[in-house]
Simulated scan of single mutants.
Amino acid sequence: MSGHGFAPTRSSSGEPDQSSEATEHSGVLRRVRSTFAAYVALTKPRVIELLLVATIPVMLLADRGVIHLGLIVVTLIGGWLGAASANSLNMVVDADIDQKMKRTERRPLARDAVSRRNALIFGLVLAVVSFLVLWLGANLLSAILVMITIAFYVGVYTMILKRRTWQNVVWGGAAGCMPTLVGWAAVRGSLSWEPIVLFLVIFFWTPPHTWALAMRYKEDYRAAGVPMLPVIASEARVTRLIMIYTWLTVLCTFALIPAASWIYLAVAVVAGAWFLVVVHKLYRDTLRGAPVTPLKIFLKSNEYLAIVFCGLAVDSVVNLPTILSYF
């Protein structure tokens, strides 16, 4: 036996078995890749797309006509780390119900690919690094706002609201609105009415967006004991509330028009009209008892938000005179 406690496998000729060593090496690489993929999955990378949609246009609006590329990159990195932290800690708390839902049963903690202890440490380390990146790369206010976001998402939404009330995503969705405040604070070092309006846009957009998805997976939520609105209410009531919140979303996008030019005005009006037509059709189909596909509303809500915020980004970069300047 060698000094390391094992002897290399040898072939019949007495030479080391290269194929055995290659197989062992390949197995190690697979385990490393699997572990790395599990930790990436903890961060819910697809969810973080909202961070990009919300943060960049707000930063461009905060200083119209100027692109602070370095600051945008730093803010996105810090914000991504903060969102990854919140998502990882969310999975730690929700590991038990994730095992009961088909939509989430392949998440790392649900299938024991990562231990709760390691996921907790991972999430906390990400939070600390996020704070430091934003504090040193942007300013203290943006760093504090990200910490508030993490605490609210995990402490208020996940641990208190999610399993207790159908209004979980109404109030808990505020965490997803915070990139608007973080982005503005990173540029200005303070807050103003414009990011608050954009905060409200995402605040009112989140419930219909989430309820549409929950309509598709309501049996999953029922099995996990999570009182999402589609679990406890009729489809008519759910789609009516989706319609009401969509109207509030569109009206909030109009509230930002004075701070923008005709480019954003046109985008907000056309996109808002299109999305309202889609949502009203869903409500009418529900009342008639016609087959509905709520997942399409979920996907179209993503498209709507992306269109509005991209329109705002283009408007801010072009920097035409604002609507307010004409009065």
Rank of each mutant, 00 (worst) to 15 (best):
residue 316 S to Q: 11
residue 25 H to P: 15
residue 271 A to V: 13
residue 224 A to N: 02
residue 228 M to G: 06
residue 47 V to N: 05
residue 324 L to V: 15
residue 152 F to P: 07
residue 192 S to K: 04
residue 249 T to P: 02
residue 128 V to H: 05
residue 113 A to L: 00
residue 185 A to G: 08
residue 263 I to G: 12
residue 141 L to H: 12
residue 224 A to D: 02
residue 206 T to G: 15
residue 3 G to S: 12
residue 113 A to S: 05
residue 308 V to T: 03
residue 12 S to I: 12
residue 141 L to A: 06
residue 38 A to F: 04
residue 10 R to A: 11
residue 289 G to C: 07
residue 245 Y to P: 10
residue 129 V to G: 07
residue 111 R to L: 10
residue 27 G to D: 07
residue 64 R to M: 06
residue 109 L to Y: 06
residue 94 D to E: 11
residue 169 V to L: 05
residue 250 V to P: 03
residue 75 T to C: 05
residue 64 R to Y: 02
residue 12 S to C: 14
residue 199 F to M: 11
residue 138 A to M: 03
residue 23 T to F: 08
residue 169 V to M: 03
residue 257 I to N: 13
residue 303 E to S: 15
residue 11 S to P: 15
residue 312 L to F: 02
residue 135 W to N: 09
residue 168 N to I: 05
residue 266 A to V: 15
residue 257 I to A: 07
residue 99 Q to W: 10
residue 169 V to Y: 07
residue 103 R to H: 00
residue 309 F to P: 10
residue 115 S to H: 03
residue 56 I to M: 04
residue 112 D to Y: 09
residue 217 Y to M: 12
residue 182 V to Y: 07
residue 130 S to D: 10
residue 68 H to I: 08
residue 80 W to C: 02
residue 280 H to C: 15
residue 258 P to K: 13
residue 20 S to A: 14
residue 192 S to R: 11
residue 221 Y to R: 00
residue 15 E to N: 15
residue 273 A to P: 14
residue 276 L to H: 02
residue 74 V to H: 02
residue 93 V to D: 08
residue 283 Y to K: 11
residue 313 A to C: 07
residue 54 A to R: 06
residue 75 T to D: 11
residue 256 L to G: 02
residue 178 M to D: 06
residue 19 S to D: 14
residue 258 P to D: 11
residue 274 W to H: 13
residue 95 A to N: 14
residue 155 G to P: 01
residue 30 R to K: 12
residue 132 L to D: 11
residue 141 L to V: 04
residue 185 A to V: 09
residue 187 V to C: 12
residue 80 W to Q: 12
residue 100 K to G: 02
residue 284 R to Y: 10
residue 185 A to M: 01
residue 35 T to Y: 10
residue 221 Y to L: 05
residue 245 Y to C: 08
residue 309 F to T: 10
residue 17 D to V: 05
residue 18 Q to F: 14
residue 59 M to F: 07
residue 112 D to C: 01
residue 266 A to I: 14
residue 114 V to I: 14
residue 212 A to L: 03
residue 60 L to C: 00
residue 62 A to G: 06
residue 323 I to L: 15
residue 253 T to G: 00
residue 55 T to Q: 13
residue 306 A to L: 15
residue 204 F to Y: 09
residue 91 M to L: 07
residue 101 M to A: 06
residue 14 G to I: 09
residue 289 G to N: 13
residue 197 V to H: 10
residue 121 I to R: 08
residue 213 L to R: 02
residue 279 V to E: 00
